[in-house]
């Protein structure tokens, strides 16, 4: 991505900084695993490419469809892996994908307090803050305080539900469809869906703020 050439792990590469200890170790471990025939450099490169192809844009497509098609939303809530496959998206994780819906009465927000479980097979790499110790510590005990830091303030009569994904489930939040989008096209709706709204720390954008 930045400064290196993935194809040949032995090739000298141009860098604008000396190798860090971490970089040397990654290189050493990869080289040894290749020498032992467990992985190939090509597999590593393809795996990185595969992850780079995963992004919140895919998730946004799923959410926009759920907003315009109630039957699809019902299928998404019942079996998310099968539902996204209808849109040609393969969930590339072994874990199950589970969708939960935010409404005018309920607001879900997702965390993994023990680790960093995330629906990366759909949304790509998790953001740094999701993996951070402060987020993992605080969002379970003070979700509204953390949500406020993200500019999200569910009214007191909304039930805030924190989802701590400790096991084999990866949670996708279906954010509430913004008001005033009745005539908005599916493609335009997808542009309102942010990564953070699919984690539950934010609402979907409103058209005016797009």
């Amino acid at each position: 991505m930045h400064d290196d050439h993935p194809d040949n792990p032995h090739a000298p590469v141009a860098r604008d900084h000396p190798m860090t200890e971490f970089e040397r170790r990654v290189d050493a471990v990869q080289t040894l695993l290749i020498e032992k025939g467990l992985i190939t450099a090509d597999q590593v490169r393809r795996r990185v490419e595969e992850m780079d192809s995963r992004s919140p844009t895919l998730g946004a497509k799923v959410i926009a469809r759920a907003w315009v098609d109630p039957a699809f939303k019902a299928r998404l809530l019942a079996d998310a892996k099968a539902a996204i496959a209808e849109l040609g998206i393969e969930f590339t994780q072994e874990a199950a994908l589970v969708a939960v819906e935010n409404t005018q009465k309920v607001h879900h927000v997702v965390v993994c307090t023990l680790c960093s479980c995330y629906p990366r097979g759909l949304l790509g790499y998790p953001p740094d803050w999701y993996k951070s110790l402060n987020y993992r510590s605080r969002v379970v005990v003070d979700p509204r305080g953390v949500l406020k830091e993200f500019g999200t303030e569910p009214p007191p009569d909304v039930e805030v539900r924190v989802l701590d994904s400790t096991a084999d489930m990866r949670y996708l939040v279906i954010p509430a469809r913004p008001a005033g989008t009745e005539g908005t096209s599916e493609a335009e709706l997808a542009e309102l869906v942010t990564r953070d709204s699919m984690i539950g720390v934010a609402q979907a954008r409103t058209p005016a703020l797009r």
């Binding site: 379970v140 039930e159 805030v160 989802l163 400790t166």
Partner: peptide, 18 residues
Amino acid sequence: VWGKYPGPPRDQLLIDIY
């Protein structure tokens, strides 16, 4: 769950447990 939960009492925590 928390003795001093700062939010409204209706709030919930959902967690997967074996």
